[in-house]
Write a protein that binds this DNA or RNA. Sequence first.
DNA 1: TAATATACATTGACAGACGAGGTATCTTGT
DNA 2: ACAAGATACCTCGTCTGTCAATGTATATTA
Lengths: 111, 111
Amino acid sequence: MSIASDLIRGHTDTIILARLMDGDNYGYEINKSIQQRTDGKYELKEATLYTAFRRLEGAGCISSYWGDEQTGARRRYYKITDVGRDTYAGLISEWARAKIMIDKLIETEAE
Amino acid sequence: MSIASDLIRGHTDTIILARLMDGDNYGYEINKSIQQRTDGKYELKEATLYTAFRRLEGAGCISSYWGDEQTGARRRYYKITDVGRDTYAGLISEWARAKIMIDKLIETEAE
DNA sequence: TAATATACATTGACAGACGAGGTATCTTGT
DNA sequence: ACAAGATACCTCGTCTGTCAATGTATATTA
């Protein structure tokens, strides 16, 4: 069973930044690694992915450059910036707090 | 520090259904109990709250009736339906799975 | 040579959150 | 008496993020 995308919404940037914390990477490969990590249960839709790249680049969290592949389709690589690293750290700790808060909110009264 | 609403998005319905699992209640009071549970860190904005009531009622998850207060402002009470209880159970288990999935996705490679 | 995979990108529609604004009643302080 | 604030409801219009649909181009494989 798949997960409603509204539950993932708000994590897209964190997910992408996490992948770039592991090193420079390009869109298609990033999405593949997301699918692998979730055993195919989740993938970012391409439109969502590229929208997020634009957003993150506009915010100064990532920078991009074209790869120098001699063969195959061109690849645009992304690199996380210092701002991006700070943002990532902040999002991680926010998630930790949000998890606890949501759990509290969706609990029913003890019986 | 407050929590980005995009992290809560997708939980609004679950949060409301959880409160109604504890018994019939009305909008203003539901929102108060949400604030109390989070020590004031979170509240549903009124527009969000009433939008969600309409959505949940339209989906058959809740029903509503006017309270018979003799004094003070009128109150519209909501009651969870059987469909709502099933929906709540489904959302809870989906959240459990989503939490695990998100944690996997925002982790960086082990070093 | 057709299909599939790789790899990028944009457009337009849609849904949920929410600021701003509105209505009405009751209580409390001055 | 009267203003301010709390209680309690509601809607409209805007914004943002997601995503289906669509398009481009190259390489591999059946």
